[in-house]
Simulated assay, not measured.
Amino acid sequence: MQCFVYRSTRRDDTYLLTDRGETFEHIPGELLQHLGRLEFAFEFALTPERSLARTDGRTVIDHIERNGYYLQMPDRDYEST
């Protein structure tokens, strides 16, 4: 699966991952408002075996197939430092 990663301009260390490129109609409006403007960060080939910074490829693929996106947010420990 080709995965597109967008950085939130409003929330530090928060990323939206999707397989649809710059099409955000499938993302809930309330979530888009919360994230602010989204900046394209990068694109990569996502496989179930791929290890990511805070999760694994299978989890991201499952979320994208079910919801159309995966939201990566900072860990609670990170937010409190």
Rank of each mutant, 00 (worst) to 15 (best):
C3P: 04
F4K: 02
V5Y: 06
R7Y: 03
R7P: 04
T9K: 13
R11K: 15
D12C: 03
D12M: 09
D12S: 14
D12P: 11
T14M: 01
Y15V: 01
L16I: 05
T18M: 08
T18L: 02
D19P: 00
R20K: 14
R20E: 11
R20L: 11
G21C: 05
G21Y: 06
E22H: 12
E22P: 10
F24I: 03
F24V: 01
E25T: 15
H26G: 02
I27S: 05
G29P: 03
G29H: 02
E30K: 14
Q33I: 09
Q33F: 10
H34N: 13
G36L: 09
R37T: 14
F40T: 02
A41M: 05
A45C: 05
L46N: 09
T47G: 00
P48C: 09
L52H: 07
D56K: 12
G57T: 03
R58L: 14
I61H: 05
I61G: 03
I61N: 03
I61C: 08
D62V: 04
D62Y: 04
H63M: 10
E65N: 14
R66L: 10
N67W: 11
G68I: 04
G68L: 01
Y69Q: 01
L71D: 11
Q72C: 09
D75L: 12
D75Y: 06
R76T: 07
D77N: 12
D77C: 05
E79D: 12
S80W: 05
S80M: 06
T81P: 00
